[in-house]
Design a protein around this nucleic acid. Structure first.
Lengths: 224, 224
DNA sequence: TATTACTGTCACGGTTTGATTACAATAGTT
DNA sequence: AACTATTGTAATCAAACCGTGACAGTAATA
């Protein structure tokens, strides 16, 4: 489960240099000199990050990214450009870029910015510490700390709480929860969720004084 | 429910300039000249992003952030520094920074980088907002803010208001509303809509001073 | 102003929805 | 295999929600 970085850069020597340095840090890379085959690759492979030159012959890199965004592809992007005027930086960000590097840049900085973006975007799966108020989930050890004390949860309860904590301020309906927490193709009834939620509430807030989980009548449940 | 940015910067004029520019973009800011009271604030308020000067007298900003991370606080951080040597940038990133700005930087770039970080970290709450005058609906959390205060609506009321807000300046007749808000194939009477509209009016404008919803006699209702 | 049609308001009660408990079935452990 | 923990389902209860009908209020028209 390594990290795959896709690079589009028309200057071949720079492309090689980038691939070499990122490879040395343990990243897998795929280099392209233009955007021709990029969309296919994005559909086939799970790409974690795109490094995109903005000054490509033909297509503008930022226009390409804008079209990716329009078709629902939200892979993070770092733009690379020789231009360093504000207007261009602005355009890059507005079109869905996550960071911006201007040539010439050091390979060290490239690696650092790549790591920072990845840290932010794969936070949950890699680092694995999610917090909400005084609740902390550790995904690796599947442990739960509430008010500095450990709380024991079953697998189902943990997964359910994780789903809620990963979607703070979002109302999750029962269908969604059955799909994402229970998963599989078993058929369950909506009531099943009610009972599971109540068992979870009982464990994380026995006094019923915290009101972590709010039920939204007719819709579902939320952490807010 | 706006976005709160916490800034630590010991140069007072720069702090003011940052607060002014971010405020103009609609962000709430809290400025500090040192890290003394910051931890308390982070525990009390829901801070969305921290801007941290690394060259503070006394504590190193990056050391402070590292300690935040150790105590499980994962609020995103942008470091700000006069140093632009690689080694310092590296230290900032390694200690849990999400981005790095070196002085002097333009306010435009600051704002852009702030937005890029927020886009990644709070995708749910930024998207899917509908507004009309001083009413804001958040579809994900199904919350309603009117004049900066939350208002509680039932599922039906929320769906009804959403239908109206999604069709501003369009008169929706009762048949349309029954079809789109009530849905299903149940048969309801037109009067049902009247009562629902009035219950909604009562909740979003108890004083009857705003006149959000206009009734178009013989036709239906509209938001205009 | 008088008439009429439409809309607002209120109270009532049925229906839906969720919380809670108990029980059964299943999986995991000793 | 016996035991325990886990979890789905059924049953019961309480409460929120909302559809309906009756009537008052209001706007339109002549």
């Amino acid at each position: 489960m390594s990290t795959l970085i896709l690079i589009v850069e028309d200057e071949e020597d720079i492309l090689e240099l980038m691939e070499f340095n990122l490879g040395r840090e343990g990243f897998e890379t795929m280099g392209f000199l233009n955007t021709k085959r990029v969309i296919e690759v994005l559909e086939e492979e799970k790409v974690d990050l795109i490094l995109m030159d903005r000054n490509l012959p033909g297509t503008e890199g930022s226009e390409f990214v804008a079209s990716l965004r329009r078709s629902g592809i939200n892979t993070p992007v770092i733009f690379i450009s020789a231009k360093d005027k504000d207007e261009h930086i602005e355009e890059g960000f507005e079109r869905g870029g996550d960071d911006y590097l201007t040539k010439p840049f050091s390979m060290k900085e490239l690696v650092l910015r790549v790591k920072a973006i990845l840290r932010r975007t794969q936070k949950t799966s890699v680092e694995g510490n999610v917090t909400y108020r005084d609740i902390t989930l550790n995904l690796a050890s599947r442990t739960v700390i509430i008010e500095n004390s450990p709380v024991e949860l079953t697998k189902l309860e943990f997964d359910l709480l994780y789903a809620l904590m990963g979607n703070q301020n979002v109302v999750l309906d029962r269908e969604y929860l059955l799909e994402h927490v229970w998963g599989g193709d078993e058929m369950y009834q909506d009531r099943t969720v009610n009972v599971a939620i109540n068992r979870l509430k009982e464990k994380i807030d026995p006094d019923k004084s915290k009101e972590y989980i709010k039920t939204v009548r007719g819709v579902g449940y939320t952490l807010c």
